[in-house]
């Protein structure tokens, strides 16, 4: 590192956004919570005490072991207890969060790519493409996202042959949640593009004969990324909740790959008989994940755009 030009890391540390972050305790706590959960989920196969879906590693005698209490027969202790088949709840939750996060992140990515492309094109070209997009957006925004995701999921399932249904379920779910959410991105990008395209740097790029696609993606897109990032963060929280809801209703991920929503549905069944830990810990994880990502999104919105409330 030379002394005259500070390194990238230093510039990042010194930026307004980083300063705002360092002085916002809520954002720091939310980030820590979210990162911890994400880390545990991503590295679940290496971190989890056991692989809950490897039947060889299960001991039925461990079934219904309460948390932090040694099992009466085997003497094993589980931090968060064990479920009816003797699976360690902590491991189950880590694997479940992995599925939830994967579906949520992929759905947001899909919505983002689709929304940005359509939004850029509509904002750049205007005309009937733009009109059609805005009509679709109006109609779609009138319906709750979860209902749209549910309908798309149901329709897609109808078209997929029986034998492929479970294999494709996760991808269908991702597309369904993504399609229920892309309008937000398209609208914001369209609006920002319409403002940006009249600015001088865009005209300069046009004058030197740059290809419209290059102008859109290389010049305009970086300048509209701020709001997109905010929506992406909030969308992630919503997508995780949407996935959990659908899985809870029994129309989401297949039973072989349970997510947090599936775990909560299973846990509800054991509530009456008193095995509360099978329900409580997945619920708390979902709540912590959704709440921390939500708070982070809220903070990001305020930090990136002080004019917005």
């Amino acid at each position: 590192m030379t002394s005259k030009t500070p390194g990238r890391l230093y510039r990042l540390w010194d930026s307004d956004l980083a300063y705002a972050f360092r002085t916002a305790p809520v954002a720091i706590v939310a980030t820590l919570v979210a990162l911890t959960i994400i880390f545990c989920a991503v590295f679940a196969p290496w971190l989890a005490p056991m692989n809950p879906y490897n039947p060889a590693g299960l001991n039925l005698m461990n079934g219904f072991t309460p948390p932090m209490e040694p099992n009466a027969f085997t003497g094993e202790t589980f931090l968060m207890g064990a479920d009816n088949q003797g699976r360690d709840m902590l491991s189950t939750i880590m694997y479940g969060t992995r599925t939830s996060l994967f579906v949520g992140a992929m759905a947001v990515l899909f919505a983002m790519v689709l929304g940005i492309s359509v939004g850029l094109y509509a904002g750049w070209r205007g005309g009937w493409v733009d009109g059609a997009l805005m009509r679709v957006a109006d109609v779609q925004l009138a319906f709750p996202a979860i209902l749209i995701a549910l309908l798309i999921f149901g329709i897609a399932r109808g078209f997929i042959p029986d034998n492929l249904r479970d294999q494709l379920a996760i991808w269908v779910l991702i597309v369904a949640i993504g399609l229920s959410d892309w309008v937000q991105f398209a609208r914001v990008v369209r609006g920002a593009t319409m403002v940006e395209k009249n600015k001088e740097y865009v005209q300069a790029a046009r004058v030197i004969g740059a290809h419209p696609a290059k102008i859109m993606f290389r010049h305009i897109l970086p300048n509209v990324m701020g709001p997109v990032l905010v929506i992406a963060t909030i969308s992630l929280a919503l997508a995780i909740i949407a996935e959990a809801t659908l899985s809870f209703l029994g129309v989401g991920v297949p039973p072989t790959q349970p997510s947090l929503g599936t775990l909560i549905r299973i846990g509800q069944g054991f509530l009456i008989s008193g095995e509360w830990w099978i329900l409580l810990f997945p619920s708390l994880t979902l709540l912590a994940l959704a709440l921390s990502v939500n708070l982070l999104g809220d903070w990001l919105r305020d930090a990136l755009n002080p004019r917005l409330r």
Binding site: A244, T245, F248, L249, I264, Q268, L279, S283, L287, A290
Partner: peptide
């Protein structure tokens, strides 16, 4: 931030 289904399950509990 609480999903509807979770509120329901917690109320039942």
């Amino acid at each position: 931030s609480l999903p509807t289904f979770l509120i329901g399950v917690l109320l039942i509990w």
